[in-house]
Simulated scan of single mutants.
Amino acid sequence: MMYQQTEIARFAVDDWRKDAFLSFREGVLSPSPKFPCIFATQGLKEDEMRFSFYESDDDEAVKSWAQHLRLYLSSARQLGKYTSYVSFFNLPRDQSLCEYESIFWSIVNRLHRLDEVMWPQERTRNTDSPYWEFIYHGEPIFVVCNTPAYKGRKSRKSSTFLIAVQPAWVFEHMGLLQERGKKAIRVIRQLLQQYDDHPVFPYLGLPGEENNREWMQYFIPETNELDSKKIACPFAYRNDKEQEGAPNPSL
C-alpha cells in the first residue's frame, strides 16, 4: 500500500512506520545543515512523494514492493515534477554497510526478475556505459538506498533501511541537462560538501556524462577509496527465456 503524509500522520505513536517516516522527514526538511537534495525537499513540501512500508526483505515483501512500484510509476506523472517513491523496510538496524549493500542488490535483482515488461531493446545492458539506467515496468528509474550504517556519509544515513525511486523523466523536467539544471547540480554538490564528512562521491553524474556509472550511485560507499574499473556491478540480468516468461515470473 502507498501512503501520503497525511495518512502516515494517523499511525500510532509507537508504530515503527511513523517513527521511520518522521526521522526521514526531519532529515529532508532540515534547515541546518540543509539537506543537499533540494529537489527531494521540494517534493516532500509539495506532497508529491509517496511512501510504503515492509516488515522484511523476504520474497513476499519484494513481490509487494514490485506491485506497488508498478502502481506508482503508472500514476507518478500526475503527482508532480518532484515526485519520488520512498519505501521503508523494517530490517535489523545493527547490520554493517556491506550487509546492507548485499540486501539492496538482492532486492533490486529480485525486482528485475519480477518485471512484467521486457527490457527495452534500445536501452543498453552494459552497466559500464555512461548511458546505462535501470529499467522497471518499461521505465528508466533512479534508485537510492539509505541505511543506518552510514556514519560520515550523512546524506545517505537513515533510521532504517530505505529505498527511494525516481522516474528518469523527473530529471528531464528539472532541466538537469540544461544550464539552469547544471546550476542546481552545483548547488547540490556544494551542499553535499557541507553536509557530509567525506568528499563528494566522484562517480556522481547524469546519463551520457563520461564519469557517470549510474549503478554506483545507487549504493554509495562510506568513503571514496575505490576504483570503478575493479568493481563489478552486482546487478544480474535475467535471461531472455525468463523474460519471455513474464508476466508471472517466479523468484
Rank of each mutant, 00 (worst) to 15 (best):
E242T: 06
Q5G: 05
R17L: 03
V108M: 14
S84N: 12
K229L: 07
Q217A: 09
Q217S: 06
F51M: 07
E172L: 04
K34S: 10
P221N: 02
I231E: 01
E209D: 08
H68N: 09
H198E: 12
K157P: 04
E244P: 11
S129Y: 08
Q178I: 02
W119C: 15
N239Q: 06
E60R: 01
M118K: 11
R10C: 13
A20Q: 06
L79Y: 13
I231R: 03
F201N: 15
A164F: 01
K241S: 05
T127P: 01
Q5A: 13
P140M: 10
L177N: 15
Q217H: 07
L29G: 05
Q193A: 11
Y218S: 13
A61S: 06
L192N: 15
R25G: 03
H68C: 02
R17A: 04
E222I: 00
S74L: 08
E209T: 12
R77S: 04
M174Y: 04
N239D: 13
T127K: 00
A168M: 05
K157C: 00
V86C: 12
V108P: 04
R17I: 05
S64E: 10
F21V: 05
K151V: 15
G208C: 13
F89E: 09
V108Q: 12
Q178R: 10
R50D: 02
G205A: 08
C233M: 04
E46S: 09
R238Y: 12
G205S: 08
R189A: 11
P167V: 09
Q166Y: 09
L79I: 07
L44P: 03
V165F: 00
Y82K: 14
S84A: 15
G138S: 07
G80W: 04
V86D: 02
W65G: 03
R25Q: 06
E139A: 14
C145S: 14
K157M: 03
P120Q: 09
F89P: 15
W65T: 11
F104K: 05
E122N: 10
D227H: 02
C98L: 09
A246C: 14
A40Q: 01
K230C: 12
D47I: 01
A9S: 13
E179H: 02
Q217W: 08
F89Q: 13
E60L: 01
N146H: 10
V165P: 01
Y72K: 01
I141T: 00
L191E: 15
Y237W: 14
V108W: 02
S129F: 08
M118C: 15
A12Q: 08
E116R: 15
R189V: 13
N248E: 07
C233A: 05
I103V: 07
K230V: 15
F104H: 09
A76W: 08
Y72I: 00
A61N: 02
A40V: 05
L79E: 07
I188A: 06
P33V: 13
A66Y: 11
P36E: 06
I103T: 02
W169R: 09
A164K: 03
Q166D: 06
V13F: 04
V13P: 04
E225R: 06
M49T: 15
P31A: 00
A246P: 08
C233K: 04
P199D: 12
L206S: 07
D115F: 05
M2F: 11
I163R: 02
G152L: 15
Q166E: 06
L111F: 03
K157T: 02
I185M: 14
I135E: 00
P36F: 12
D94I: 01
S106P: 01
